[in-house]
Design a binder for these strands. Structure first.
Length: 263
DNA sequence: ATGGTTGTTCCACAA
């Protein structure tokens, strides 16, 4: 049963010891990383090779950076999101691993929304929707995981009113996200954890500022989107909160996805 | 209204 995980590590160099320890503990078959904050040549591939993982890395100095790590061969790599050849930001890597087509994505934050950063975010989401539609025709189960920088619904944020104007929670952002779901993609965590009043919130990110982690005031912005064929394999999706409490933690914590077969 | 945190890089910017 393949186990996948996604984690925005906020600098792989600052987080290497934590990530390696977590990988040894959880043993994912496929690991999606975001915010490497290094160029591909600087990615510590040898440390993951020692644990049995191949790597596909799309890097950039200081900002962004995404990777796919897998125990099985990583084939037919796509190293940027189609739709804008001038976009040099390292936010997307996709490949075939076993029977799955898998992408690790780092969707633009978009703040402040009155700047060009927000139109860039919306344009990136439109490109993602178009490409996701293409992926549905390729015959394999598709898994699109990563840091979406989208709070899907009010229950996914500790203070919905306070976040109403934020680029992660604006109505246009959530509408653009839903257009991807409407193609037929299933968001794994939400599918398995229908929210009822009184349920404990399930966040994947807590800001470093303002004591958000100790108060459990977070956001759920790291997601796995599954094509219909992949959703048919869905067994479990969990948020591992433990690494957020570690010393020198990333502000995000990993999401783990279990599929019934495939790799 | 302010200050609050982390990482990378350069004397800010992005999150």
């Amino acid at each position: 049963m393949p186990r996948l995980a996604t984690w925005n590590v906020n600098s792989i160099k600052a987080r290497l010891a934590s990530v390696l320890a977590w990988v040894e503990d959880v043993q994912p078959d496929i690991l999606l990383l975001q915010e490497l904050k290094c160029e591909a040549a600087g990615f510590p591939a040898d440390r993951f090779e020692a644990l049995g993982y191949q790597a596909a890395v799309v890097g950039q100095k200081s900002y962004n950076g995404v990777a796919l790590l897998a125990r099985a061969p990583i084939e037919d790599r796509l190293e940027q999101l189609p739709g804008d050849a001038d976009d040099r930001q390292a936010r997307y890597v996709e490949a075939t691993i076993g029977d799955l087509r898998v992408a690790s994505l780092y969707l633009p934050n978009g703040n402040p929304p009155e700047t060009s950063k927000y139109p860039y975010k919306l344009a990136w989401m439109a490109r993602l929707r178009r490409h996701a539609a293409d992926l549905l025709t390729n015959g394999r189960p598709v898994v699109l995981g990563g840091d979406y920088n989208v709070i899907p619904e009010p229950i996914d944020v500790y203070d919905p009113d306070g976040w109403r104007g934020d680029a992660l929670f604006r109505l246009e952002t959530r509408a653009a996200y839903r257009t991807v779901l409407h193609l037929g993609f299933t968001e794994a965590y939400r599918a398995l954890h229908a929210h009822r009043p009184g349920d404990v919130p399930a966040y994947t990110f807590w800001d470093y500022q303002g004591g958000r982690w100790p108060r459990d005031e977070g956001l759920r912005i790291d997601h796995f989107l599954l094509s219909p064929q992949a959703a048919d394999l869905l067994q479990a999706c969990t948020i591992d909160r433990r690494p957020r409490a570690w010393d020198k933690a990333s502000d995000h914590t990993p999401v783990v996805l279990e599929l019934a077969s495939g790799v």
